[in-house]
Design a protein around this nucleic acid. Structure first.
Lengths: 224, 224
DNA sequence: TGTACATCAGTGAACGCGCGTTCACTGATGTAC
DNA sequence: TGTACATCAGTGAACGCGCGTTCACTGATGTAC
């Protein structure tokens, strides 16, 4: 269990590389992520980085998985602190924790919710599960919202997609509420993205107040 | 008025450069936009591009302004085709035209609504006006929605921001409706971004149907 | 209408830079007997 | 406890590549007289 000094040093080195990579992401963007620049920052020759990271793409994948998990941890912790029957509180917790995380780590947010990194395709078999942690929380919340209410169906292809999804999740969420959930989720991250990309600059001075207000509107949309 | 052959050739060359740049954007992303690659594609030596475009950053700015204007043209045309008193139709026209444009030109969409290009800052004095054409349409629509309804105020800093904005626009839109407009606008582009970034892959098969459904929900949110 | 000159497109070489990745290597740190 | 060997971190040079931008230049196209 207790790691040897060498193992600890190795784990530390990998953490250092990822930390510097995150700093680089913040200052230059994901396309400019450079192993040579990381080595320079670490005071190490560029080839030495390959002791710890097999390639640039692999490092990107590690950072993406870390980002999803960091966001997932934050949001799950906030949501878990709410009473189970406080549905509105759980929704606000999910939303607020997501925004707080995004504002605190905008470059990591861009990595997972921004435009895709050119020339890089995330291996979905590794990023898939961590990438759904927040939406899974929302789905569980929707199931609790649905309880004791009549399910409202939606016709057309959307209803078909929702039937498959309901089966897959094993949660009883009616079409209408599922649709509202998709909209709330998309709007949540739409508002966060607009804030981070400066789309509100010149009209809103207090993005936090705006966000809180919109969280309330979306809660109404979900009927909580 | 009639351009000389040389002027026409020059205009054509600039168009060719921008067209190839857009193709490059589509295949490699904005960070990979390269004047040398454009020259190669044009069958021209790299320095010759500088006859037409002063620098890479300037080319990016031109592409951003073109993209905003292309989107603005498309959305304005769709909205103008609706009867003025068909408020729901105007909203659907704005939304549908935005999505259609984004789906048809995803790389240009990413340029203006995606994560910012690393190391590049758009000169806001030139991109500002074309960048607001779609939101101006929405604001005009909101003013028509507001007509004959009581304005509902919102307390706190958000109300202050909205008062300033109302003054600036010279449109009578109450706080509550303005807030709903901001949410609808953010949600609209949130849904489009999620679709383009593949966030719905695995759950939705018919994004168009989903989008149409959510446009309806957002119309309800706006009270039309 | 013809000539002299100015404008402009495009060339080709060069500068200085950065990148990802490989490879044979030197030493230091650990491990097995 | 000490020695022989294996493991591993880090070095330094190199390969081949791409980039933005500048500069002096050659010709072709236009324009003024």
């Amino acid at each position: 269990m207790t790691a040897t000094p060498r193992q600890r040093a190795r784990a530390q080195a990998i953490e250092d590389i990822k930390r510097i990579a995150r700093e680089q992401l913040a200052s230059e963007g994901s396309a400019a992520l450079s192993l040579r620049a990381i080595a320079r920052e670490l005071g190490i020759v560029s080839s030495a980085v390959y002791r710890y990271v097999p390639s640039r793409d692999e490092l990107l994948t590690m950072l993406i998985i870390d980002a999803y998990n960091s966001l997932g941890d934050a949001v799950e912790a906030a949501e878990a602190a709410c009473a189970r029957d406080d549905l509105a509180g759980r929704w606000r917790a999910i939303g607020t924790a997501s925004r707080d995380w995004a504002v605190a780590r905008p470059s990591e947010y861009a990595l997972i919710y921004g435009s895709p990194v050119p020339g890089y395709h995330a291996p979905v078999e590794r990023t898939g599960e961590p990438g759904t942690r927040v939406s899974m929380l929302l789905m569980a919340l929707l199931a609790d919202v649905q309880r004791g209410r009549p399910a409202v169906a939606v016709a057309g292809p959307l209803g078909g997609d929702f039937a498959v999804l309901r089966d897959f999740l094993g949660l009883d969420i009616g079409d209408d509420l599922l649709a509202r959930g998709f909209l709330a989720f998309s709007a949540l991250f739409g508002v966060i993205s607009f804030e981070l990309h400066g789309q509100y600059v010149g009209s809103l001075t207090d993005c936090r107040a705006h966000f809180d207000h919109q969280l309330g509107s979306l809660a109404s949309l979900l009927g909580i």
